[in-house]
Design a protein around this nucleic acid. Structure first.
Lengths: 350, 350
DNA sequence: TTGTACGCGTTATCAA
DNA sequence: TTGATAACGCGTACAA
């Protein structure tokens, strides 16, 4: 077994000083051609690579991004990570992933663990519990320590940092307007409680679109699901409440759901009630997921371009890291909005 | 902005030596109660945390695992990562994720990038291109440098390292036997070319199950898809060849697909041909994905327990890392097989 | 009880 | 042209 070779070992072997080796490998003009060739040949032979940790310590830069997300088994978040990875890799950075699992404590713990020198900056999406608690001290502290943060999707205005958001509001307006254009008169929304910022925004877009078209939003058609009671393994509750809404409001001819699961569940409930899609009921989901495409009928969806969100966030963070010379923190922050796109499939009329 | 505080700064502030501060914080018996209290109070006030990078350099241990996977936007792999994360976190490790994107070069590049001190060991699943090339030098070199590797799912026997695999063979036997028990007489398999190890194993299981039941496998019912020609965005090719198989072999009453996409596509093709599921055709997919559950009809599937695979791999790797004291490499390797589980849904008769 | 010196691997500065 | 030294932040063996 040949352990990784260090400058010191090369120096000893060639009977020169460590600094000579270092300079020779960086092709310094200070060193004679002879020694350079000798050292470089030896280094190549033993496959010398500088130790990242030593470089990090010396440069006080790790060239590593910390990504904290609520959940990784989720099409949206894994696509975002992929986008981050692509950009990070291209620009010579690594990515450490931490999962908050929607828990405040785990979010704080993960951030503390990484903030102690392991990374240069964070890209994160806030956990639901944190959004409820509205306790953002860990974000402000991190930023105060000079470590930049880029938030995406689930963000809060209270924090001064770069942000990448989806145009939830206008994306929803588009979707609901589309339903109206396709002839829907009574459009229901299946959304989340308001503490989830994106849920709130999408609900507002829904209401706005109705108003724009001279329709008064009816509370009975606004279903705010407590997503803490609903998981992928426990859909009965969701099915029940959606079923109740359909029964109490048989005039519903359109559904706008703020995520994939709600949309598919609505389709399933409708199917079981003998309601045909898209003839009697048209459905649109706000989602980037795979389920939409493969559902039967396939689901018309508002795509969020998750990969682009990840790429944008990574570029923002790395830009900030590389601009901050001499510890001069760049105090200007920007919020980038990523446009959504309506992908028409079978769950709406063509 | 208050930068992270170091031992040196605390020492200067309190007018003691750095080592005194260090010892006081670690509650050394060498230090007087007085100074300990003083130092600890100060450290707490300034929220002192040791710098991970410095510790890594000193201990020559990063407490970080490197995970290289072919693709992250994939239910199986993201579940594996989640399993790894849970265990790593519990045992005080971080996780750096690298994506090979099924490319040999990116796999090598990613591994080289991380192997230079950034991590203590690898958990990886081999890219398709690497499996085709059969060039495994980067694995052997990494292992030779004393950096342990744990492979999962897509593994090769040629490499001496710990492995976590799915019981592809017996899982397939179970699935096909199940179809036979449910009355299928002519079962087709939709699988991959043999260079994908799991595809090959699953095909072998299919053939074995047939033989066990006195059925001769027919070549015309074995569809080996070249997965380089098929992507989620390009399913026409797949639909066409599956459709041809159905037309040329109308007696088919059962389909075993080695992944979710193939299974769903088969169901879609059948539906379009007016074949009813599960009455005329029963389908089972080898997959852990979300599509199975939400498909219509929902898909009976061989679950791979991806999270357990991740947990097992992480525990294996960390065990190895923590056993290796004094650079004594533990040269014993084990292969852990994770059992699959047949999850019955609507695509097979009850 | 406290402080000094060293080493982890690297690079930059300055001296020879 | 080369080499010694300091520094990044930490912990520890050893000296005071």
């Amino acid at each position: 077994m040949k352990r990784k070779v260090t400058l010191k070992q090369i120096a000893k072997e060639l009977d020169v000083s460590i600094s000579t080796v270092s300079k020779a490998l960086r092709n310094s003009a200070e060193i004679s051609e002879d020694t350079k060739l000798k050292v470089q040949a030896f280094a190549k032979l033993y496959n010398y690579r500088p130790n990242n940790i030593a470089l990090s310590l010396k440069n006080r830069k790790t060239r590593t991004l910390g990504v904290i997300i609520p959940e990784i088994v989720h099409h949206f978040f894994s696509k975002v990570i992929k986008g981050i990875e692509v950009v990070a890799n291209k620009r010579g950075y690594n990515v450490i992933v931490g999962l908050s699992n929607e828990s405040f404590d785990k979010e704080v713990l993960n951030m503390e663990m990484l903030a102690n020198g392991s990374i240069d900056g964070f890209i994160l999406s806030i956990s639901k519990e944190t959004l409820q608690n509205q306790d953002y001290h860990h974000f402000t502290e991190t930023i105060n320590q000079g470590m930049p943060i880029v938030m995406f999707d689930r963000v809060v205005n209270d924090i001064d940092c770069d942000k990448v958001v989806v145009d939830d509001y206008s994306g929803s307006i588009n979707a609901v307007s589309h339903l109206i254009n396709k002839g829907c008169k009574n459009i229901a929304i299946i959304t989340t409680k308001d503490y989830v910022s994106v849920g709130k925004l999408r609900t507002q877009g829904y209401i706005q679109a109705l108003e724009d078209n001279g329709i008064q939003a009816k509370p009975s058609l606004i279903l705010k699901v407590d997503d803490r009671q609903v998981s992928d393994d426990n859909l009965e509750v969701l099915e029940t409440i959606i079923g109740e809404m359909f029964k109490e409001n048989p005039q519903i001819d359109g559904v706008f759901a703020v995520n994939e699961l709600y949309a598919l569940t609505a389709m399933k409930v409708a199917r079981n009630m003998g309601i045909t899609i898209p003839e009697q009921l048209q459905v649109i989901g706000f989602t980037d997921g795979v389920l939409s495409k493969h559902a039967n009928p396939s689901l018309t969806a508002v795509s969020q371009h998750a990969d682009l969100i990840g790429q944008t966030a990574a570029n923002l963070l790395i830009d900030k890291l590389e601009i901050e010379i001499d510890d001069e923190v760049d105090e200007s922050y920007q919020t980038t909005t990523i446009s959504t796109e309506l992908i028409e499939r079978e769950s709406t009329k063509s």
